Computed example of a mutant assay.
Amino acid sequence: MVFQPEDRPLPTGLVPETPPAEPAPLRDAATVVLLRDSAAGLEVFLQRRAQGMPFAGGMTAFPGGGIDQRDADVSVAWTGPDAAWWAERFGCAPELARALVCAAVRETFEESGVLLAGPDPATVVGDTGRYRDARAALVARDLSLAEFLADEGLVLRADLLRPWSNWVTPEREPRRYDTRFFLAAMPDGQRADAVTTEAADAYWATPRRALADFRLGRCHLLPPTRVTLAEIAECGGLAAALSAERTLDKVTPKLIKRAGRWHAVLPGEPGYEEAT
């Protein structure tokens, strides 16, 4: 499925008309694409962000968010590839890589109720409803991920995550993120939900259905979400997606105006080199 820049004008009001005097500082963030095989084929978990959110309000996206400084806590019980392995994949320091993996697990739990952790290195928790109060405390920042896992005797399952891509918010945006995207299979026995103030709706869809909804104007997708959906659609199934070999170069869209509407263009697309 091929998209051209004119296919995707951004929603009115999403891009400020007056650019900032200086680009906003980048904040490191993590996003997790939850996947499952279904009768309809490979599906992804999507959330329509609440309209009033300061970043990407009203857009359809994957669970994720910025790093909390406590995500770098080395006391987090951890199994799977170590921080050095993740650092090599994401081209960053091991300390940041550790924080990114922890943020990925924490944000996914906070925003969807899906917890990539278990009582030992070989298992994953089932129904996460018993952790409802801890989930709320994590959202309120009254509890850190390390404290939560220690209190419940759980181990973070870094081996359930796969590195996928690295996207940087355009310089014109007032809030900017250097976001690393991860893939993860939906754990058996758990249920993804929309019990979060950050989402107005949540649902499972095949990547092709989500892209068709975008083309028909039924949802709004930012370039990282759109491109990720297109890439996953090409994988065919869960196993193929999780085993895909990836090159994680930073991708920074640019914003240009056509016929009075803002459009996002990607490297290699018409207008990218000319855009300021």
Rank of each mutant, 00 (worst) to 15 (best):
L115H: 08
V114Y: 06
R135D: 03
T128N: 04
G118C: 07
F109W: 00
T108D: 10
L115A: 03
E111N: 02
E111F: 05
P121S: 02
A117N: 02
L116P: 03
A117R: 02
R130Q: 14
G126F: 12
E110S: 02
A117T: 03
D127M: 08
A117H: 02
F109D: 03
D127W: 07
R132S: 12
T108R: 02
R130W: 09
G118F: 01
R135A: 00
P121I: 08
V125G: 11
A137M: 10
S112E: 01
T128G: 06
D120Q: 05
R135G: 01
P121F: 04
R132N: 01
G126V: 11
T128M: 07
A134S: 15
P119V: 10
G118L: 09
P121Q: 07
A117V: 05
S112I: 00
S112K: 01
T128C: 14
G113R: 06
L116R: 02
V125S: 09
L116Y: 08
T108A: 08
G126L: 13
G113H: 02
P121A: 06
V125T: 15
V139H: 11
V139T: 15
P121M: 09
V125I: 15
T108G: 11
S112A: 15
Y131R: 10
A137R: 14
P121D: 04
D133R: 12
T108F: 02
P121G: 04
L116H: 12
L116S: 08
V124N: 11
S112R: 11
P119H: 13
V139C: 08
V114N: 08
D133P: 00
A122C: 06
A122I: 11
G118S: 06
D127K: 07
V139I: 15
G118K: 04
D133M: 10
G118H: 01
G118I: 09
D120I: 06
D133Q: 13
V124C: 13
D127F: 06
T108K: 01
T108E: 10
F109C: 04
G129Y: 09
T123Y: 07
A134H: 14
S112D: 07
R130P: 02
F109S: 03
A122P: 05
P121R: 05
D120M: 07
V139K: 14
V125K: 09
D127Q: 11
D127N: 15
A136F: 07
A117W: 04
V114T: 05
Y131L: 06
D133S: 13
D127S: 12
G118D: 05
V125M: 11
E110F: 00
A117I: 04
D120G: 10
T108V: 03
D127V: 08
V124I: 13
D127Y: 11
F109R: 06
A137C: 11
G129V: 02
G118Q: 04
D133V: 11
E110C: 13
G113Q: 06
V139D: 15
R135I: 03
L116E: 00
A136P: 01
D120K: 00
T108Q: 09
V124R: 09
Y131W: 12
G118V: 09
Y131C: 01
G126Y: 04
A134M: 02
D127I: 08
G113A: 05
R130V: 13
E111P: 07
D120T: 02
L115I: 04
